Amino acid sequence: MVWVWWFGFGGLLFGLSQIGVSGNLDVTSLFEILSGLLVISLFCKRQLSLKHPLLELRVFTAPSFRKVALLAALTNIALMGPELVIPLYNQTIRETNAMTSGLLMLPGTILMAILSPLSGKLYDRFGIKRLVSVGFTATFFATIPMIFFDASTSLNTIAFLYAIRSAGLTLVFMPLTTSGLNALPHSYLVYGSTMIVTLQQLASSLGTAALVTAIKLGHGFQWAFTLVLIIGAFCLIISATLKNKTVTEI
């Protein structure tokens, strides 16, 4: 398993990071990315052939779990990415200090703390479909103005939009995992939970590297916010295909 992390995910992340540093897609970075993807593919093929695999990839045979796992990964990028990009924007374009930049994100953090314990109750009452519709719609429309951020954008506007995005994503973050695990039999729950957490961690690392790469290649923060908006659009599309209440599918 260690060699997969080092040569597979490590190579993929290092390749993306190199593009972010240099601002160019060179042969070395492309080789590292493709090599990482090849190692990950071989690992997955090997796991599927084992009777007692290290990671039970058969959890992905459940359609609902497959969609939720993808959404969980994308949601993590949508949540963690702006947490890096917005402070960079504030301190380089708006020329705010670190304290002010942190305080601008405080309203969003407070909303996350308030909504996190409520999201489970809302899921039990309304189901996942309504919840993700509201959450991803709020996130999508709050991201659109971010593409037009410039040196004159109001700090209050930045704080407000970030808070709306945080609230929207918090509504769907934990309920998505619950909905996906409901599609698995009891014996697969540990594997499913491990897989979602692993994908979220990988998505956070790779997504952050991809956003920094977008800033470098596009020579502006608008490119990073555009990428986040595209991710939000994908989330909206995929969430429309979810079942409101999932049952065991394996």
Rank of each mutant, 00 (worst) to 15 (best):
T194Q: 14
T248I: 15
S29Q: 10
L227H: 04
T208Y: 06
F148C: 09
S101I: 08
T213D: 02
A72T: 12
I147G: 00
V85Q: 03
L55S: 07
I93V: 15
Q18R: 15
N182D: 14
L118M: 13
I230F: 14
L54E: 11
F140T: 09
L176G: 02
G192L: 07
T100Y: 02
L48A: 11
L34N: 10
L189H: 11
T194E: 14
A138H: 02
A167C: 09
V228G: 00
P63Q: 03
V212E: 01
V212I: 15
I250V: 13
P175E: 03
M80G: 05
T178C: 04
L189A: 11
L79D: 06
G180T: 04
A78Q: 09
L71R: 01
N156W: 13
S193K: 03
G232T: 01
I237R: 09
M112G: 12
L211P: 01
V39Q: 05
T170R: 01
F60L: 14
L227R: 04
G192C: 07
L202T: 03
S22N: 11
A78L: 08
A210E: 03
A224K: 03
R58L: 14
E83Y: 13
L169P: 01
T96W: 07
F31A: 12
M195Y: 03
L202H: 00
L161G: 00
P117C: 05
G192T: 04
L88S: 10
S133Y: 13
S193F: 04
C235P: 06
I128V: 14
A233W: 04
S49V: 09
R94D: 06
I86S: 05
L184W: 09
Q47F: 05
T248W: 10
Q200L: 10
L42E: 08
T226Y: 06
L171S: 02
R130I: 11
S101K: 05
R125S: 13
G23D: 08
P82D: 08
L104K: 03
V190Q: 12
W5V: 13
G220M: 07
K243M: 10
R66A: 14
V172H: 00
P117L: 05
F7T: 01
S154G: 11
A113N: 02
L242M: 13
